[in-house]
């Protein structure tokens, strides 16, 4: 079923017209401007700066310790030890595969849960009227202002009371909702989900949860996709709390890769090979999700 058609059924003609207009925008019909050469040049510069550190990581990963020590600024041509270094990481005693699996589990579960809960809460805060709405929202935002370093000790006490130390759930549960996500979805709904759509759905007899499911969730797709991506990356690179509560016996990737630095002299070719291994899944995610994400953004507010 085409999305506009579906909206017409579920949310009424006005909403469908609105959606069609928005898609028109997104498809570039009557788009206000095209990128000129200035835009392309500036973006190319930005992209080169963005790309360099990743390439630099790869350069070091393909080199060896003496070469790195001798050349503080590496040559732009990769060395020949990349596969060697990768296999050194995989063969070292750092539980790489277990860590990879743990990281995937943690990142996937937290991303799905953050998106779901944040979308629900965001929809309520942005579009529903209820008592204490503003105060509760301010409270959510204020919770972000608590310095995280300090929470470690009480959180650890809590986790050992629950018997969760050393288990993945100790990393998953604290990450299952974020104030950041709730705030983000609230703001997105506020600006991109018109009341007329919700009203239309209500008039057509949708209850709240169905209005959410049929109207709000599709509208939130681009923002939800971004939130999922951000949450995934944040969870993937998180070091301190997993290190404290899990330790090296049941590690996530950053915790296990940290062990590659466990000597007085740091072999950067080995460490960076580990970083490359840990970054590949993220880049794959980018390539797969990127297309989805951008087309999601392009489709504007409503897509079925």
């Amino acid at each position: 079923m085409s999305s506009v058609g579906m909206i017409e059924q579920t949310a009424g003609k006005g909403a469908a017209r609105y959606a069609a207009r928005r898609r028109g925008n997104a498809l570039g019909v009557g788009s206000n401007r095209r990128g000129g050469w200035v835009t392309y040049t500036l973006l190319t510069i930005v992209l080169l700066i963005s790309f360099y550190p990743i390439y630099y990581t790869f350069l070091l990963a393909s080199s060896d310790a003496p070469t790195i020590a001798q050349n503080p600024i590496p040559s732009l041509i990769p060395g020949g030890n990349f596969l060697d270094n990768i296999s050194r990481v995989l063969n070292s005693d750092i539980k790489f595969w277990q860590a990879l699996w743990n990281s995937i589990v943690v990142a996937v579960v937290t991303s799905v849960s953050v998106v779901l809960f944040a979308t629900l809460a965001g929809f309520s805060f942005a579009k529903l009227r209820f008592r204490g709405r503003r105060a509760l929202l301010v409270f959510v935002i204020a919770t972000m202002a608590v310095p995280t370093q300090l929470g470690v000790v009480p959180l650890f006490i809590l986790m050992s009371e629950l018997g969760w130390t050393g288990k993945l759930i100790a990393v998953i549960v604290p990450g299952m909702v974020t104030a950041f996500g709730v705030f983000w979805m609230t703001q997105y709904f506020e600006e991109s989900l018109p009341y007329e759509l919700i009203e239309a759905a209500r008039v057509d007899g949708c209850n709240m949860i169905r209005t959410f499911w049929n109207v709000a969730l599709p509208a939130a797709k681009p923002a939800a996709a971004m939130l999922a991506l951000f949450t995934f990356v944040a969870s993937w690179t998180n070091f301190f709390w997993p290190f404290i509560v899990l330790g090296s016996s049941n590690p996530t990737l950053p915790v296990s890769l940290q062990l590659l630095q466990a000597s007085y002299f740091k072999d950067y070719s080995l460490i960076m090979a580990g970083v490359v291994l840990a970054t590949i899944p993220l880049i794959l995610l980018f390539i797969v999700a990127g297309k989805q994400l951008v087309s999601g953004i392009m489709a504007g507010a409503v897509k079925g």
């Binding site: 277990q98 743990n102 589990v105 579960v109 130390t165 288990k167 993945l168 049941n250």
Partner: peptide
């Protein structure tokens, strides 16, 4: 459930 299953699998050593 997912969270529990997922985290349960690696806790045996502990």
């Amino acid at each position: 459930g997912v969270a529990l299953v997922a985290s349960g699998c690696s806790s045996s050593a502990e």
